[in-house]
Simulated scan of single mutants.
Amino acid sequence: MSAGFLSFVALEVLVQVIKTQVEDHIRSHFLGLLHLTNASQDDLKMLNIAQMQFQCCGVEQGYLDWKNNISQTCLCDNMSINPCVPAPKGSFQFTVEGPEDQPIMVYSKPCIPLIVEENYFYLNIASCINAGFMILWMLPIGLCIAILCQINKKLETPEVVYSKEARAGKYTCLVETPDDYIA
């Protein structure tokens, strides 16, 4: 049981170390895409999927990372939960339908903090589940220790003294015979 508990503790330490490494990995990967106009098609596809899923735009500085070629996935929709800001005029490589006098709205938040936050959420869930297992494993260990302490505890037992009177037969019969019931 102790070895199992220690393995859960080691797993918890590993999850905490992974949290910092995940953030560093995500930051370094997405910051490598910072010149979005020069990024590969696969990287742009991955970023566009992230922008649609997390309702964000750009990598680190929001829509400014796109310079004058803001992606269509940065456009806010009516059901947006993240804040939107008006985009600079002429910063799209596609046509946008809508009223001429109304500015085109894009997501203001960059994607890196939202992606890191999502990964932290799942790592925190794993950490809580692991902590629950650690508590469940501590309970039997504590009970085993309590039982061992009770076994090793020396109880005072009264001393038995032999008495001659006990042998003399000063006892009475507690059981009645069937003949006693008839009378």
Rank of each mutant, 00 (worst) to 15 (best):
N78F: 04
N78K: 15
M79E: 12
S80A: 11
S80W: 04
S80C: 06
I81Q: 14
I81N: 11
N82P: 05
N82Y: 09
N82W: 13
C84K: 04
C84Y: 02
C84D: 02
C84M: 10
V85I: 15
V85P: 00
V85S: 07
V85W: 06
P86H: 04
P86S: 01
P86G: 05
P86A: 06
P88S: 08
P88C: 07
P88H: 11
K89F: 13
G90D: 05
G90H: 00
G90W: 05
S91M: 10
S91R: 04
S91V: 02
S91E: 02
S91P: 06
S91Y: 11
F92G: 08
F92I: 00
Q93R: 10
Q93L: 11
Q93Y: 14
V96P: 13
V96Y: 03
E97A: 15
G98S: 03
G98W: 01
G98D: 01
P99K: 02
P99D: 07
E100F: 12
E100D: 13
D101M: 02
D101R: 01
D101N: 02
P103Y: 02
P103I: 00
P103E: 00
I104M: 15
I104V: 14
I104T: 14
I104H: 15
I104C: 06
I104N: 12
I104A: 03
I104P: 09
M105R: 05
M105E: 03
V106C: 09
V106M: 04
Y107S: 01
